[in-house]
Design a protein around this nucleic acid. Structure first.
Lengths: 246, 246
DNA sequence: CGCTGTCTTGAGTACGATCAAGTACGGTGG
DNA sequence: CCACCGTACTTGATCGTACTCAAGACAGCG
């Protein structure tokens, strides 16, 4: 009867409105007054939960909607010219998917549910129109786009395997805390292979680093469940490379 | 009396208005009608050219303005925890600087002129307000932000030294072509050290790859001047890793 | 029970970093 | 004009981290 570290805190029932949604302080509606949130509500299409492995969108499809994660964890990835997968991002509740598709007008990545997860679909043209009527909404979209830029910046740095893995764990920890989950004990929704791919490491390397961290009592793992035992120590190992994401 | 490959085409005189500016098809004003461009013009502060080595902004300074490059080439960089420089981007005319500062509200990088270069300063709060009044301006800012996301995505990939250098040269080539310069012969505004740092390689590695490309007649270099002799060959070496930037 | 897929551990290898010279260019001053 | 110096760049030799290949451990499931 193991506990479910990153489940219980928020209400998991499908939220009917942004006003009721526990994620409204992280997601698109940040800073909107109730009346404006109501207008935003009217364009949001709340979609039924997807099965693990189901795709939200694929590279090259015409971009029409942004997706806001309501629950679960999603993975963005592309295939390179040799058909190898490249994981670009993991998306947690409250985060927007598809921002990089605005410029070219077609989705730039495949997005797949890693566990059962639900999204809110935000038709982009409607959202864009509403944003030009509600300055604070426009501002929030600017901020969310800008935030993603910082996230990529750290992924693009040349860090050692240890720095990358430590940074990855701490980044997840921070994001879970923001969402009201435990920042010390959580389940990894993604297999080691996806973590490795995301960090541009071999699966074996990630495994070895995790083992090393465990031997040094920085973390404890049991399958997908991770406990961060020594946040300061991890931060040192990450070499303070996680800069952004205030 | 060598020619100046990437100088002559656009008018280098300081443009007084966006309407007259040869970069208006790349920069913020894309898609605006003359009346709206006039309104944008009024908030643009055209700054006198900076000397090579002069800084535009520094990490941690309060973010108030975006900068649009008018001429020259700028470099964004940060210092890591050990005081080593990390080059994040090179900015050519028509490109926006400071987008990643919107979210945190402070500049995320130091920006320095690599050669004599001028910028237009765009006070962010004014720009934001105007964008909420001009939907096409809002849309263009969304697109510029989104475009930067794609640019980071390729830098974050795990490519070999050859792929990175080839990709870098082809990326520059594409960006020069967009700006009306030659896409086959151009001057590198930045020293090898900065290129290497940007690509997360050692200076020596960049030098070796360039030498190799030269031996294989893919390119010809003479100091900072580069000629791309075989674009297809380079594309192959880049392994089609430059995906975005349509 | 064996099958499958995930994860871990081990041995050898390769790519790029580091260390170290050497070359070429540009500026300065005599 | 040339000698000098500093910086940028190139080339060479060695080293180390992370990759590859390979095998074994462990859990879930038919």
């Amino acid at each position: 009867m193991a506990s479910f570290p990153n489940r219980p805190v928020p209400n998991r029932a499908i939220q009917r409105t942004c006003v009721n949604c526990s994620l409204s302080e992280l997601c698109v509606p940040v800073g909107l007054d109730p009346a404006d949130m109501e207008r935003l509500d009217q364009l949001v299409e709340r979609q039924p939960p997807l099965e693990s492995g189901a795709h939200l969108c694929r590279v090259g499809e015409r971009f029409t909607t942004l997706f806001a994660v309501r629950s679960g964890c999603f993975k963005s990835y592309r295939m390179d010219s040799e058909g190898r997968e490249r994981v670009l991002a993991f998306h947690l509740p409250g985060e927007l998917i598809g921002l990089d598709a605005i410029y070219p007008g077609v989705y730039q990545s495949n997005v797949v549910a890693l566990d059962m997860g639900g999204v809110c679909a935000l038709p982009y043209s409607d959202l864009s129109r509403l944003a030009s009527q509600i300055p604070r909404l426009q501002e929030q979209i600017f901020r969310l786009l800008s935030k993603d830029l910082s996230a990529y910046a750290w992924l693009a740095g040349d860090y050692s395997a240890e720095e990358r893995v430590a940074g990855f764990l701490l980044d997840l920890s921070n994001r879970y805390r923001e969402r009201g989950y435990s920042d010390r004990v959580f389940n990894l929704a993604m297999p080691r292979r996806d973590i490795a791919n995301y960090l541009r490491l071999a699966t074996e390397t990630v495994s070895r680093v995790i083992t090393r961290f465990e031997r040094e009592s920085l973390i404890h793992t049991e399958r997908r469940e991770v406990s961060l035992l020594d946040l300061d120590g991890l931060n040192e190992r990450a070499n303070h490379c996680l800069q952004a994401l205030g």
